[in-house]
């Protein structure tokens, strides 16, 4: 369960996230939509405890992110935007490091490592340095890192950015496979992705929450029945109003 109440983040005069509230329950795959600069990444950084909110509260798996950050972080897996990692490490070394920090040991450690390596098809690059990998592989290493401890909550910031169509399809299948009992939040500006994997979509622009519905319901709001028309209508309408 993720509960977000009146979340606000200000940078000086700029309000990046403006009084957002929503909750996400297990089994939901939430698509976080919005134009660039809408506040998607900022919201995710606050959920994962990287940035402190200016006001409002976030609780993940019953742990307040500000009061008990370690417990909240332990139940989350996070793929930051751009999938940063340590370029001078090998893929294996990097995953072993994450396993160390996540305190995985013994059989469970081995089975989790084997699982993510198989799921993201990293066998062929295990001994390669991460900085020598293609963008698609780097993204998959980032996803492997997020999945390693089999977290209850997954926060994925643009998980398919930079992947080719086949890889995109793989990642979407992966997300669908895990969706049943987990909470997954995905930010994206690719609308077909929302159709493919999400059962709920939130649209934010200018830091404000503008829509919260299933992708079907959203699409039905446009005469054409297409999600991108609704997206344009909602996000540009907001700009004109402001």
């Amino acid at each position: 369960m993720i509960e977000i109440r009146n979340l606000t983040k200000r940078y000086g005069a700029l309000t990046a996230v403006n009084d957002i509230s929503f909750t996400v329950s297990p089994g939901e795959v939430l698509g976080f939509l919005g134009p660039n600069g809408a506040g998607k990444s900022t919201t995710m950084k606050m959920i994962t405890g990287f940035l402190a909110p200016t006001s409002g509260s976030i609780s993940v798996c019953g742990h307040d992110v500000e009061a008990d950050p370690l417990a909240a972080k332990a139940c989350m897996g996070y793929l930051p935007e751009g999938a940063p990692s340590y370029g001078e490490m090998t893929v294996r070394g990097f995953l072993e490091f994450i396993a160390d920090i996540r305190l995985l040991s013994g059989d469970r450690r081995r089975s989790r490592l084997d699982d993510v390596i198989a799921r993201l098809q990293l066998d062929s690059v295990l001994e390669q340095m991460i900085e020598t990998l293609s963008k698609g592989f780097k993204r998959r290493v980032g996803l492997a890192q997020a999945l390693l401890h089999d977290p209850q909550v997954l926060i994925l910031d643009e998980p398919t950015d930079g992947l080719d169509p086949n890889q995109k399809h793989q990642v979407r299948t992966l997300i669908n496979d895990m969706a049943k009992d987990k909470i997954i939040v995905i930010s994206t500006h690719i609308l077909e992705e929302v159709d493919a994997v999400c059962n709920r979509a939130i649209i934010i622009a200018g830091g404000k929450l503008l829509a919260d519905a299933t992708p079907k319901e959203l699409a039905a709001r446009a005469p054409s029945g297409r999600l991108d028309d609704v997206f344009r209508q909602i996000t540009t309408g907001q700009k004109n109003a402001a």
Partner: peptide
């Protein structure tokens, strides 16, 4: 510079 600080600081460590 590399952005890995975001990864490091969202791991369950102080």
């Amino acid at each position: 510079k590399s952005g890995s600080i975001e990864l490091l600081m969202t791991l369950p460590i102080t």
